[in-house]
Design a protein around this nucleic acid. Structure first.
Lengths: 331, 331
DNA sequence: TTGAAAGCGCTAACAC
DNA sequence: GTGTTAGCGCTTTCAA
């Protein structure tokens, strides 16, 4: 049984100073590479710091220099979803270049939890907040800290946002299928309460309207939220007396569900999916692609500008989409 | 034109106290729900806090109460890689339950960068460090803070680690292919300098040795680090005068590269891949699967125990693997 | 029940 | 070049 360990505290700057035989401030100057320290003194201080295994206490520094941290918070859905992790990857890379650190938290697609996470991050004095809203709750940014919304604009307030060209992408998917002669086209969409899904549905139906096609309307399915349900929905659609000849799925999860349902079937309807993903090429899947990582990088850059003092009006950046034909949308 | 904005500092506890007409300490007690505060006083303090939009400054609290933060750092490769993001997802979920926050940083698979990131996190006084080592560098944990290694054990020191049963998984893949009569089996592996790859290669060759098979040896390819190269390597293998009849790829990236190379070919060798991934089922791919998210959760739990004061000897947990036959490994 | 004083580890401002 | 003093916003003594 080891004796009660005294809770070993890391060495402090004054301990380093004492050991080097200089004052606190001199030690500070030496380690921070400030001018007006003689070479010899600097050497001694550095040596003392090494011997003690001294590490700067960032908390204390940050408290002193302005009571804000070097942290930027990202609130999103589960990182296991490749969309969120791609965004996180872009964000992290951009932050790291500026010496900022990324704190990631999962909102579990739950608006209340999301609000409490905002509180927690604000208490930690994050320098900025990046949010992919759960869609349910509204993140009120009454905290006076820079906030950039990703993929979904905030409800009821104007703020910096980075969005995908949802309407445009869905529009081009619709046109692509129409141009190949499809009329009975099914639309399988996620929760309509999110603005991004809403825009995709709108873009799609606008294209149908322009083409004077109403045959698709019986095949609209919304609020399909996971891959398994998407698979069921697609199976049901194909079991109809007059099944659709083409499908458009409005995000990667739903597309994957559709692919599972289509697997091994004799009749393969045309399929276009919103969001590109790994292996879509191997599967010969036609997709509406966009640079998800760039979505994150852009948001991070906007946040960094705000941190840097930019005070212009809120901006909205729209990331374009591209249709990548790989076979499934051309049959 | 608004006048020069004074840099608005968030309200402090003493401002709240002043407004409520109580002392600093009383305000602190009231907001922290400590005993010995009269109900009326508490109400007044809470009201004052609300009116001012007061948020606790976690930096100051943490500095005062022990100079450590509520942060846990995770150092890994790019989150765009589903393996890392699955681990991160498991870690985050576990931390959040304990009120801890996850800071994720990307080591860019670069040992030197990794060391500097450790420094940065230690300076922020993270409570624990979770590391998926880049393989190149050695993370020396001379910092006296809890550290758990994930997927790859640290070189040259004993420490808490959570590993996948790499050797066992590779062994079962080899047996699976041998049992189906394959002899010329190609092994496409990633950087051998990482312990996990080393273990997979060892497990595979041990099984071959047991079976008395040496025919596979000309088909060993290592240090294949990305999907594109993996594709090239597979194409080369299949172009040999005596091509292998089966392939084993030692991680998801390489498997995906192999799939791309195999696409549209007449002759389809058997294929087993280490790591399961989304859509592997749709592709009919036989894999060595393991619970990647659990890898992260387990590591987080071990770190939390250390934070909680556990001082036992370092432990190593091995996460088991399962072979999931889906067709590609059975042809 | 409440308050005053001290101090966490550091840096800013000003002396020497 | 170097040291002294003060104070970031909070919690922890200890006294009232």
């Amino acid at each position: 049984m080891p004796a009660e360990e005294p809770p070993v505290r890391p060495p402090t700057l004054s301990q380093v100073a004492a050991r080097a035989g200089v004052s606190l401030k001199t030690a500070s100057r030496a380690l921070n590479g400030e001018p007006y320290v003689s070479g010899a003194t600097e050497q001694r201080v550095r040596a003392a710091a090494d011997e003690l295994g001294y590490r700067l206490n960032g908390l204390a520094r940050e408290l002193r220099t302005g009571a804000t941290s070097a942290l930027v918070g990202l609130i999103s859905g589960d990182l296991a979803n490749p969309f969120y992790s791609a965004v996180a990857s872009g964000v992290e890379r951009e932050l790291r270049r500026r010496g900022l650190l990324l704190v990631t938290v999962n909102n579990d697609e739950n608006g209340e939890l999301e609000s409490s996470l905002v509180e927690a991050l604000v208490e930690r004095r994050v320098r900025a907040l990046l949010v992919i809203p759960s869609g349910g709750g509204i993140v009120a940014n009454s905290h006076n800290i820079p906030c950039v919304f990703i993929d979904r604009p905030p409800v009821g307030l104007v703020a910096d946002s980075v969005l995908i060209d949802n309407a445009g992408g869905a529009h081009s998917a619709a046109e692509h299928l129409l141009a190949r002669g499809h009329r009975r086209i099914a639309l399988v969409a996620d929760l309509v309460r999110t603005a991004s899904q809403q825009a995709r549905i709108n873009g799609f139906s606008a294209a149908m309207r322009s083409a004077g096609n109403v045959d698709w309307e019986p095949y609209l399915r919304t609020d399909v939220h996971d891959a398994a349900t998407a698979g069921d929905v697609v199976s049901e659609l194909l079991a109809l007396p007059e099944p659709p000849t083409a499908l458009f799925t409005t995000n990667n999860r739903l597309t994957i569900g559709a692919l599972r349902a289509l697997r091994g079937r004799r009749f393969q309807p045309a399929l276009v999916g919103f969001d590109d993903f790994e292996l879509a090429d191997v599967l010969g899947l036609t997709v509406i692609s966009h640079d998800t990582t760039e979505l994150g990088s852009m948001a991070a850059r906007m946040a960094i500008e705000r941190i840097g003092g930019y005070t212009g009006p809120p901006r909205t950046v729209v990331i374009p989409t591209t249709l990548i034909p790989r076979g499934s949308g051309e049959r």
